[in-house]
Amino acid sequence: MTPNEGGQREQRPTGWRIVFFGTPPFAVPSLEALVAQGENIVGVVTQPDKPAGRGRQTIAPAVKVFAIQHGLPVVQPEKVRGNADFIALLRRWQPDIIVVVAYGKILPREVLEIPPHGCINVHASLLPRYRGAAPIQWALIHGEKETGVSIMLMNEEMDAGPVLLQRSVAIGPDETFGELQERLAHLGAVCLLEALREWHAGTLTPRPQDPSQVTFAPPVSTELGQINWAQPAETIARLVRGLSPSPGAYFFFQGRRVKVYRARSVRSESQVAPPGTVLRVEPELEVACESGVLVLGEIQLEGRRRGTGSEVARGLRWQPGLRLV
């Protein structure tokens, strides 16, 4: 998606000196939009390179890769709070405004007070709901029907600053975390340009968040993904969607992890078998739950290729009546 898609009209750059804080792929469309619009990006701040994957090779953050490709100065401080050298560098950059998109750390007052026009953040929820590190995942796990993007003016409290602009979107009935995250990343880029233009023009009024409506979205863990068949099928299906593709929902077969990428719930008039029982392998893999039936659309046994639930079950010679854990 280009910066002007989604109803965004052609804009002139604000002329502000901008420092961009961001780390994962979710942040790249916003930085790309700023670059495409010709904004003056005087510096990019991202997390340090970290080992990732099975080989634990050191991987650069997606924002760093994009910034280097576009000739933007990049720094990767190990810490921000109390880092005198980093604060001095920020002051030398003389930002008019700081833009933050999924940077990964709360910015201290000594950073927030540097830019005269404040620090604005792109957050993937309809604040004040789902403050925190994993708003997309928890919206799906909780079965929300809509979510969106909020552009807020930052303060020292996590995701608690006044909102400048919000846009909502419906969540698709089978949409996964990965799919929704990509949509919101691009919507966030469009909203960022709109908010930046209006903030520069003085036409936005910050709106305080309603403290009575606050909910939180803490980081998701690998342990959260273990499926408990003694739950309703709909609950498990939402967990699968909220954690797909990573870190993933899973169960175990003969001590080996089976990751579930896609699943849907099917109503059942009565509990037809104990939870975790394979009911059918063909034409689709169906498993009994506390209530309802879960259809496992796409799964992967540890060490093997990903496939449809039916394909993997046939390869493992699963039969109706098998109990999964």
Rank of each mutant, 00 (worst) to 15 (best):
T215Y: 00
L279E: 07
R56I: 07
G276T: 06
V111I: 15
L107P: 02
T222L: 15
V65W: 01
G297F: 10
F216A: 02
V122T: 00
L112P: 12
L126D: 03
L140V: 06
V312I: 11
R12K: 13
T277M: 04
R12P: 04
I141M: 11
E157D: 10
A233W: 00
N4W: 15
A201V: 01
V74G: 09
N83Q: 05
L243E: 14
E78C: 03
V214S: 01
L164E: 12
A273Y: 05
S168M: 08
Y261A: 05
Q300M: 15
A273C: 08
A52H: 13
A249Q: 14
I98G: 01
V101C: 12
T23E: 10
D96H: 11
Y250P: 04
Q271Y: 06
F26C: 02
A62I: 07
P206N: 06
V266Q: 15
Q181V: 07
P275V: 00
V287T: 12
M1V: 11
W16H: 01
I98S: 01
V266R: 11
M152F: 15
S310L: 09
T277N: 02
Q8M: 15
R317P: 04
A263E: 10
P95F: 09
A139Q: 01
P218G: 02
A195W: 07
E39Y: 15
V281M: 02
N228T: 00
G202C: 05
C119I: 11
H117L: 13
G242W: 08
V101L: 03
G178S: 02
G242S: 09
A195Q: 06
P245E: 09
F26S: 02
G15V: 03
P274F: 08
L180A: 10
V122K: 00
D96Q: 08
E110R: 08
N121K: 00
V325M: 13
A195Y: 08
N121T: 02
I236Q: 03
G22H: 02
I97A: 08
T147Y: 12
L224E: 14
A52I: 07
M158Y: 08
V220K: 09
V149W: 10
P24L: 07
V293A: 00
R323C: 11
A288G: 01
R12V: 07
I151H: 13
T176Y: 06
R131A: 10
M152V: 04
S244A: 15
